[in-house]
């Protein structure tokens, strides 16, 4: 790997995210560890979306659905494990994180397959709106289905277990999320650099040419959409365990908007864009929230200014223009 300016910035971002909780732990400030964990998880969710949105040009306004499905996978499995009620065929949930992750990835991927298969028949503004509508469908289902808390959400009484790790220790849980984030980013890099990734980017740039050389854009896009959904679902499961709580708000369209915001703040299609964006977003939220109760107003203002005047996001400023876009 060459030591380009972008790689250097990426390295600093990755080490910076690791340094904050380590320092906070040394200073006895667990709050900042939680903040850093939030950054890692949101960055993972946005990395998932970045695959569809940044690389594939598929502006999904419904990724909250996958984020929430991952969250509910964690919540429901943990709730059944706690109460002992069988979920199906005598299987009564689990509190093992790695099983939960597999279920979250599978469920989000499966729903992504269904939503993607229908939504990808459309394009442009129709695609934006149909993904939004599907996410709303999942949202209203979660609100109106009382078995798992409905509107009130579902608590996870004890954080789920990971073999050999005390997950309730904030730093430990951060490290789990951090490792998964790095793996997620690595997966993103591998996919983007692969033949499949090349086809996906080509389909974004010129659909007709891709079809002419004998590749079906629909299949490429659907595959990317499913992987994207699965990654975001995994992040949802981590998020549920961080808060030890899932509610329909994870499925709301604000969440979908936030995920897009993270990508744009960081730099669309960039490898570390989601991490840069998530760090910036959480820092804004925290800093503005400390200064004024009306922080959402200023967040909106900053976001508006970024969209209007600072295209390319934080990485565009720090690391220069993307070399291929």
């Amino acid at each position: 790997m060459l030591l380009t300016r972008e790689n250097l910035v990426n390295l600093i971002l990755a080490l910076g995210l690791l340094a904050v909780p380590l320092a906070a732990n040394a200073l006895g400030q667990p709050f900042y560890i939680t903040l850093a964990t939030r950054v890692a998880i949101l960055a993972l969710a946005a990395t998932g979306l970045n695959l569809a949105l940044g690389v594939g040009g598929l502006v999904s306004f419904g990724h909250a659905a996958f984020f929430g499905i991952g969250g509910y996978a964690a919540g429901i499995l943990a709730a059944h494990n706690f109460s002992g009620d069988p979920l199906f065929f005598g299987f009564s949930g689990t509190n093992q994180m790695w099983i939960i992750w597999i279920v979250a990835v599978a469920m989000a991927g499966l729903v992504g397959l269904v939503i993607g298969a229908i939504s990808l028949r459309t394009s442009g503004v129709y695609f934006i709106m149909i993904t939004l509508a599907f996410a709303q469908m999942v949202y209203y289902f979660a609100v109106s289905w009382p078995a798992y808390g409905g509107e009130d959400g579902l608590s996870i009484l004890v954080r789920n277990q990971f073999p050999g790790v005390m997950t309730m220790v904030p730093l430990n849980y951060f490290l789990i999320c951090y490792v998964i984030l790095l793996l997620g980013i690595a997966l993103f890099a591998v996919i983007r650099a692969s033949r499949f990734g090349a086809a996906l980017q080509a389909a974004r740039q010129n659909e007709v040419r891709v079809a002419t050389v004998g590749i079906q854009p629909y299949r490429i896009r659907l595959t990317a959409f499913v992987i994207s959904a699965a990654l975001t679902g995994l992040a949802g499961a981590l998020f549920a365990d961080l808060n030890r709580f899932v509610s329909p708000s994870m499925l709301s369209w604000h969440m979908s908007g936030e995920l897009i915001v993270l990508i744009i703040l960081g730099g669309t299609g960039r490898l570390f864009g989601p991490l840069a964006g998530a760090a910036l977003y959480v820092a804004f939220e925290y800093a503005l929230g400390g200064l004024t109760e009306r922080w959402q107003f200023f967040l909106g203002l900053i976001l508006l200014l970024v969209v209007l005047f600072a295209r390319g996001g934080l990485l565009g400023v720090l690391a220069g223009k993307a070399r291929h876009g």
């Binding site: 502006v59 908007g257 669309t268 959402q296 107003f297 508006l304």
Partner: peptide, 22 residues
């Protein structure tokens, strides 16, 4: 593109909602 439009108008929602609450 539509992505920029979605984001900018999403930002406007945040400003309108919080401004009205203000």
């Amino acid at each position: 593109d539509h992505l920029d439009q979605v984001l900018a108008t999403f930002a406007l929602i945040l400003m309108f909602s919080e401004g009205t609450r203000w």
